[in-house]
Design a protein around this nucleic acid. Structure first.
Lengths: 292, 292
DNA sequence: CCATATCTCTGACTTTAGTCAGAGAATCCA
DNA sequence: TGGATTCTCTGACTAAAGTCAGAGATATGG
């Protein structure tokens, strides 16, 4: 497989050269960890909890790093009024200056990397890195089964409905969120959310159609994430969940305007069948697949 | 400039996700630095000096890291017979096993990154990273003026002549290496070598043609490096050197089979002129440019 | 052959990074 | 309302990473 070699080769030259982008944090008189943290807090501030997850730090260690930044007068840590166990971090005026300095350094580094390239090459690199970025993000998207009225699910479905509302003339009226929620949970169904950096980027569910058949519902992929194979991956995962729930066949409905989706169902082994229901007024194409 | 933003964005998502490729060295019961060093020594061994440069380590620190690996029986450090101040490092049988283990881990990591992608996406990522790799390497190539019979120059010219020999029916007989070497040195000329990871990837020289004119000679770009703007960059650098030497005009000759080169000279502002010499039997196209 | 330079090593450090157990305050849930 | 849970902080560590000033052996150029 050539791609593995390419990834490794790229990784090698990249970390040797651009990895230095990270080390642009150096020379600020502050250790790398502290700089990274300062940058991660950012102009909008952040919760300690969130920082711990994003940077994957031990809580004791993070506390100390924050205390150090606070001593330098760069950040303020104060309890979150909503839940006083939690603490929120914000940059002070001095901290904001330091943040901007880091930002400017990183920008300069990136600029100086591009500097030897011609306009044509910059455009090529721009495109190549953009593509690589999308695919790498897509490959590292995290799929998981969640409760259909959990935060993650609600956010994802909210975006899904909003999009349907924009796309269908006359708009779209969703069911109230907890309507039929149990249908999308074990033992009858499942709801899967795909997240990247904590934000939902795709979702979908399976529910009982009949004893041997699961119906795929509410499949959605965020606009910026299409064309990266995320839909196909989500579909595979939903089929796995359907199998786990004991179904041997999957059915789904969709609308003919969604041509890419229909093509993707075809590639995934679905074949068109007669309408199996009139419940969904937005559906005009119906598919099935035997789950091997 | 969109490209700067793309680079920074890419860097962020990349280091967060794939940066972990490096940390695949972890969990071997050996600190990261030691693993990196072991990997850098590699099956072919390396000179201590070289390792220090490649990994940018303090000499004392490197000595200790090596001593540690030697204690574990992974490497042997012995004086270089050619110069007994220097020391050469080689892997022992045990070290080679450990090296292969690291290599396998890194391979697995890369493979698991690609695993969620479809064949189509893998191919796209392969292509995108390949392009990005080439351009990033090209952007970080190091151009410098060297003595025309230095190691760097000799290696580069050797590859250049070998290629000419392959390309021209009847082969190519180079001048002996030190022939006319002074012509390619100050105050009459200059010789520039481009290196990437220490290996020469392009070269070229300027020599005196007449009081006001420098002639560009022996421009060569390694096969794998074409199409990355390296030729244009090298040419600009040679023109700079020519200016510095007091020339106000540059001339050069080439062969019509080298269509990309001829197109590049056109883009760089060269225009075709009558043959100015019959000295070079391989030349059938002649160009000049006024150095502003 | 001698002054100078190069290369690696040693000793004596400091700083950064990271771990772990548990305390204390706040919140949640039955 | 009391027990479990969540969140952050403190104390007490260890390991890794890095720095600096020389010492000692070897090469090199005049």
């Amino acid at each position: 497989m050539g791609a593995v070699e390419t990834v490794r080769r790229f990784n090698r030259s990249y970390t040797q050269r651009i990895g230095v982008l990270e080390q642009s944090y150096l020379g600020t008189g502050r250790p790398l960890g502290a700089s990274r943290l300062l940058f991660e807090v950012g102009p909008d501030g952040a919760a300690v909890r969130e920082l711990r997850e994003r940077l994957d730090l031990d809580s004791g260690y993070l506390t100390r790093l924050l205390a150090r930044l606070a001593d330098e007068g760069l950040v303020e840590v104060r309890p979150d009024p909503a839940d006083r166990r939690r603490r929120a971090v914000t940059l002070t005026a001095v901290g904001l200056t330091a943040y901007r300095e880091l930002d400017a350094r990183s920008e300069r580094k990136a600029r100086s990397l591009l500097e030897p390239l011609t306009e044509r090459q910059r455009a090529r690199l721009d495109e190549a890195l953009g593509t690589a970025d999308l695919l790498i993000r897509a490959a590292t998207v995290h799929l998981r089964v969640v409760h259909p009225v959990s935060d993650a699910a609600t956010t994802a479905l909210g975006e899904y409905y909003a999009e349907l509302d924009r796309r269908f003339p006359g708009g779209f009226v969703p069911d109230p969120p907890d309507q039929g929620a149990d249908a999308l949970r074990a033992p009858d169904g499942a709801f899967v959310v795909a997240t990247s950096d904590g934000a939902p980027v795709a979702c979908g569910g399976v529910r009982r159609f009949d004893d041997s058949t699961g119906e795929i519902k509410r499949m959605w992929v965020a606009t910026g994430w299409r064309g990266a194979g995320l839909g196909a991956r989500l579909l595979r995962r939903l089929e796995d969940e359907a199998r786990r729930l004991g179904y041997t066949r999957a059915v789904l409905d969709t609308n003919r305007v969604l041509t890419e989706a229909i093509a993707m169902y075809g590639r995934a082994g679905y074949r068109e069948i007669e309408p199996y229901s009139q419940d969904n007024p937005y559906a005009d194409a119906f598919f099935e697949k035997t789950l091997g």
